[in-house]
Structure formats: C-alpha cells, structure tokens
Amino acid sequence: MHEQSKEFELTAEEAAALDEIAGALGRFGQERGNLIPILQMVQERLSYLPPRAIELVASHLGMAPCEVYGVATFYNQFRFHPPGRYRIKVCLGTACHVKGGDIILENFERKLGIRDGETTPDREFSIERVACVGCCALAPVTVINETVHGHTAPSKVEGLLLGFQIERERKEREDKKHADGESQDH
C-alpha cells in the first residue's frame, strides 16, 4: 500500500521542478479529462508522483487529492517512489517469459540486492517488471531507461551493469578533471 510507505524528501532539483510544474499546469484546461495527461506531464518532469505534486494537480482540476491518488494508483505507469538513475525494466511478456525473462529479473535482483519495484539506496538503479514492451522477436528483453536490450542472457546482466559502472566512473573522472581545470583557470 502506497500510503504507508515513507515519503521521500524532495531534492532541490525536484522542488524546482515542482515549481515549474505549477506553471505548466496553466497550459491544461480544468476539465477532468486532462487528469491523465497532466499526471503524465508531472511524471515526465519528476519521474514519480510525490504527494505534493498530487495536491497541486488536484487543486488545478478542483478535485479531491484522494480522487487523484485513486486514479493514479490504478495505472501501471505512475510511480510513487523516485526511480533509480538507471531504470531497469525487465520485460515479462509471453515471449520473454518463455525464453526465461524471470531468470533475467532474478539476476538483476541478485546483482543489485534489491527486489523488483525497489530502488537501490544510492538511487542509482531501480528494477521493475513490465508487461510486454513489444519486441518479442528479441526476447528476452530488458529496457534500461529508453534503450532496449534484446536477447539478454543471464551472463549479459553483469556486463550491462559493469558498463554503467564504467560509464559512471569515467564521468566522475571527467567531472573531476573539468573541475580541476576550472580551478586552475582561476
């Protein structure tokens, strides 16, 4: 149950995004038919729906916050926890299931030490199981952020995660170099 879960603190970026959302709401009419498009817009900017965003949306549409919450929790798309920076979505459509998609899911869970629906404490990775993403001929499929990875064998899981780690370390190095470079300029 979502309401029992602990509320995540908003980061500074998220708080700023929330202000922007308040402005963006003006582009939408106040008819109830706009509810789902609005929630989609909010989630695109915040990547989840924190309670404050739900209140904002409710007041824009003149609805009770609980009604907005009731609608949002009906749909798979909406999240109530912040996802990881790398969102791992393991497809468990029929074709992926037949080709061992659940084994792929387990591998991610094991490697990251979290269960599906959870986010690693450093907010780097989150794992979700998703219904068919429609790339059945490439089964089993994993979607990480917006990239589709086809034919993901269990042994490929480690490679994928390692790739992200290397990418992250390289970025950190570059940021550091960049920062060092700047400090030298001054």
Binding site: I36, P37, L39, V71, N76
Partner: peptide, 23 residues
C-alpha cells in the same frame, strides 16, 4: 491520448473511463 498502462483499458468501457480521467 496516451494510455497509462492498464491492460483492462483495452475493454471499451474502461478505455472511455480512462480518457475521462477516471479509474
């Protein structure tokens, strides 16, 4: 209109409700 991920919304009356901003 972008459906938000509920298989049941393939059913006509459910699809209509979701466009209307309901469960």
């Amino acid at each position: 209109f972008r459906g938000s991920g509920a298989f049941v919304c393939g059913e006509e009356t459910a699809l209509l409700r979701s466009i209307e901003g309901k469960r």
